[in-house]
Design a protein around this nucleic acid. Structure first.
Lengths: 132, 132
DNA sequence: CGGAATCCTGCCTGATACTG
DNA sequence: CAGTATCAGGCAGGATTCCG
């Protein structure tokens, strides 16, 4: 009785795909980096340790929610350390770990590429749009 | 009459922020890369030209919609070329441009980093979670 | 100061169906 | 084969409020 066979095959494929995804290092990192705030936090901390409010000011446009969430995830991933100093009011400092610094070095190349080639992209885009 | 002053200030700040964003090369590129399919398409095409269906098979988990959308955007950005051969049925080949190859070279470093360090991240994460 | 919690909206994405 | 069109839902992310 092959009822639902098509749906079952799809589910099967999906499970295999998920397993494949979970086993692929590149994709797991890409999932992390596709959160663009991660890269911006890395860049900010590369210039030195920062307090929460300093990061919020330096990374224009990030909401408190996203900044907190990003920092939590990065702490969880061993990219940054979080140091609470029980003053009044409390101060919280963030710093890169060795792992974070290592990744930042790689992302720096991406940033350099962006500054060198983003104009080419803009030009290509305008030409594409002008051809309808 | 300072009615709506707070809201107006927010709007003003938002407009300034948008203008700032539009002027920042790194962020514009990050916006593109935060679409993770872009990186995967770059990697696939780096191994040689591909037809649409080949890409769909090679990049497991991408929907037709997202693949088409990603390819369109990348073509618009001058990263890939799209060549239609009017056979029956029609064949469409995608290839990297020089710009695309250049970016792919940079992203290759990211991929290498991922394969070298993703385990460190996993370990850090498990330790973080085990500490509640 | 540095968050946590809540609500709520948009759009991102996948599923499905149709076309040349 | 290589798409386009349409619909639906899920959740990313913003705004707001409250707390230690």
């Amino acid at each position: 009785m092959p009822t639902m066979t098509a749906a079952q095959r799809r589910d099967q494929a999906k499970r295999e795909y998920d397993a494949f995804l979970a086993a692929c290092p590149s994709r797991r990192l890409l999932d992390r980096l596709s959160d663009k705030w991660v890269t911006l936090v890395l860049a900010a901390l590369a210039r030195g340790d920062r307090r929460y409010s300093e990061l919020a000011r330096e990374i224009a446009g990030v909401s408190q929610k996203m900044l907190t969430q990003t920092l939590r995830n990065m702490e969880r991933d061993g990219m940054v350390t979080r140091t609470v100093t029980p003053t009044v009011p409390v101060t919280v400092d963030y710093a890169l770990t060795d792992l974070g610094r290592s990744l930042q070095g790689v992302m720096q190349h991406v940033k350099d590429w962006a500054e060198a080639h983003i104009d080419d992209i803009e030009v290509a885009r305008e030409e594409y749009d002008s051809r309808q």
